[in-house]
């Protein structure tokens, strides 16, 4: 029986699942709900402040980790979910999902490096 290469993607899935469990809910709050619901001021999410955060090396690294890992987590789990719903075109589905996650990862890296 051939040794599987699943660990490459599974490592990202599991790491992403853990990171996502800890931070995705609060990220959704901060970037999507806290400002409209006046939990934090609009000033707190101003261009200057967020840009300064993303320009800081630690801020960059944090943003990278909380974006790229959940992206791979979601891509891999969606592949399994598609199979569970009876879609048997596993390889094309996997390619589309992983390419999407890879494009997202590259966009994130290039955006962060420009700031």
């Amino acid at each position: 029986m051939a040794k599987s290469h699943k660990p490459i993607i599974w490592g990202l899935f599991a790491g992403g699942g853990m990171v996502s469990a800890f931070v995705t809910p609060v990220m959704i709050l901060i970037t999507g709900l806290a400002v409209p619901f006046h939990l934090i001021s609009r000033e707190a999410m101003s261009y200057d402040r967020v840009h300064a955060f993303a320009s800081n090396p630690i801020g960059k690294l944090l943003l990278f980790v909380v974006i790229f890992l959940p992206a791979w987590h979601a891509a891999h789990r969606l592949r399994i979910t598609a199979h569970d719903f009876g879609l048997r075109q596993d390889i094309p589905i996997a390619v589309v999902l992983y390419v999407t996650a890879a494009v997202g990862t590259i966009m994130t890296i290039s955006a962060l490096l420009k700031m």
Binding site: I28, A71, A74
Partner: peptide, 8 residues
């Protein structure tokens, strides 16, 4: 995962 993916 669909919603984690969309939010990401």
């Amino acid at each position: 995962s669909l919603f984690i993916g969309l939010y990401t």
